[in-house]
């Protein structure tokens, strides 16, 4: 089957994951948004990396699999930033203001 490699100590990894989970749950109680952001998403990233590296054995996997996942996430980033200006920045729609009183519609026709 798969090649022989030393196993990580799975139970120890699990302890750390649970500790991180507790921290991320308690983070928002400080009620500082910046800290919540770090404890919520920073820790999510760390947890994800720990699960991927230890449980999914990515530590021992060929580099091509890392390329695969980095490529996937990069493309998602491209998608996000390509779409972001359209969904999030609506200040370009200045004509919304003048539709109500019809002032600029005729002028622009």
């Amino acid at each position: 089957m798969s090649e022989v490699h030393a196993h990580p100590n799975y139970v120890k990894v699990w302890y750390w994951l649970v500790i991180l989970l507790v921290i991320s749950t308690l983070g928002p109680m400080l009620e500082i948004p910046a800290i919540t952001l770090i404890t919520a998403f920073g820790i999510a990233v760390i947890k994800a990396l720990m699960v991927a590296a230890n449980f999914m054995h990515l530590k021992f996997e060929k580099h091509i699999v890392w390329f695969l996942f980095i490529m996937s996430l990069t493309l998602l980033g491209v998608f996000f930033f390509g779409v972001a200006p359209d969904v999030m920045m609506t200040e370009g729609d200045q004509w919304i203001d003048c539709i109500a009183d019809n002032s600029c519609v005729e002028q622009r026709l």
Partner: peptide, 15 residues
């Protein structure tokens, strides 16, 4: 892993 990201998105990040 998916749940690890859904959890902060839906449950924690309420600001």
């Amino acid at each position: 892993l998916v749940w690890i990201f859904l959890f902060p998105l839906f449950y924690i990040a309420n600001f």
